[in-house]
Design a binder for these strands. Sequence first.
DNA 1: ACCTGAACACCGTTCAAGT
DNA 2: ACCTGAACACCGTTCAAGT
Lengths: 241, 241
Amino acid sequence: MESKRRTERRKDALSKERIVENAIAILDAGGETALTFRALTARLATGPGAIYNHVANKDELLDAAIEAVIVRALADIPESTRPHGAIRAICLGVFDAIARHPWVGAQLSSKPWGAAVLHLFEAIGSRLAALDVPEAAQFDYASALLNYLLGLAGQHAARARLVTRDADRTAFLEALAAQWAALGPENFPFLHRQAAHLPEHDDRDQFLAGVDLILAGITATTRGPVRGTTDSTSQRITPFR
Amino acid sequence: MESKRRTERRKDALSKERIVENAIAILDAGGETALTFRALTARLATGPGAIYNHVANKDELLDAAIEAVIVRALADIPESTRPHGAIRAICLGVFDAIARHPWVGAQLSSKPWGAAVLHLFEAIGSRLAALDVPEAAQFDYASALLNYLLGLAGQHAARARLVTRDADRTAFLEALAAQWAALGPENFPFLHRQAAHLPEHDDRDQFLAGVDLILAGITATTRGPVRGTTDSTSQRITPFR
DNA sequence: ACCTGAACACCGTTCAAGT
DNA sequence: ACCTGAACACCGTTCAAGT
């Protein structure tokens, strides 16, 4: 746990860790498109070939970068929290991490078998196991939560790709709302109606509403027999959260 | 009176529609990476510059391709179906469309403001409006369903990126299961335990389970605080309640 | 007005040559 | 063993020149 400070290494030393950290810095500063081997080698004052001594290719580099961010986000979740609260905390932690590093969203949703998603799946699934969710359903439910998370992650990443500054966010939403409003109520009644709510809505609240919705579905379906369940020994969940 | 052999139609005239259809064919045959302007111009027997007379850039081309696929998928949904069944049908329609065109998944999840997602959002949202969902919550709930859909879409696309043939799918899942099993039960108890279920699970069933879970959450929360009385989570819709 | 294709400015990756 | 950087095989996009 405790890392003792060692003497500062020379800056010249190239290591996977240092490469990954610099990659993260580039991604944070300039977004997904900013990370090129040329930008990375310029920052590290070396040649492109040097990177390949520590990392197999760009894919592995991105995997390592995203895993570092996600592991850090999950580390903040207190172990003691009850399942429902823990799942909320995990989802929120990932949401906030993506808000800080939008490029993570794109990688998360486009590489769902990577190490980062593994950590997420485990974190969510183990909390579901602590609920009364039957084992056969744990996989499906964890997958539902995870996919919701990945979908939103991709959405954030996509928006960040064309909206860099925070000030542009409301401008973007207003432009989108105008586009929706212009769609015409006969073909797009729902979007036309919801256009007004678009600029005022809070991303974080909406995200949490979705998490709670799925959690509500989980408690609703695990509690009573879903349909034709003959298991008479199904336990009840405490009605209070 | 037009003679049918009035003009000797040299080659098919280049048009945005024809470009898009050929792009879809290339994408279906070779996946996302196969669509290049060089491959497209070779197929159309023209130069790369000719494409730009009908399409602004590759992004617009992909947008048009994905919209064509999604609109076709949504066209199969009967208008008369009741809300719950319609939402299930929409989600399944998109799922099957992605199964046929895996590249659609990547585009859907990485361009969530595009025309295709607009159609999806409208289709889902308008059905929610037909339920008892209050207007303020319609946006959140439609967004939850949509994000779940996008998350799974990205997952399918990612898998298709490295598993082209259908026979390789089980091999991929078995390799992934072996990887999970090897993770060690002390650090990854959930994944270690679930590894056995991974190869046998059916993607479509699991997808539908997630949709039903969210729908269950919707009925549970719109009906008031979670109680044990909800029962309409399956494909059967009870005519009265 | 539409098409052609060479050319441009990138990109990830490789590899012989250095230390 | 690790680093260097020119070179390679791509890519999307442009544009002067054709029809």
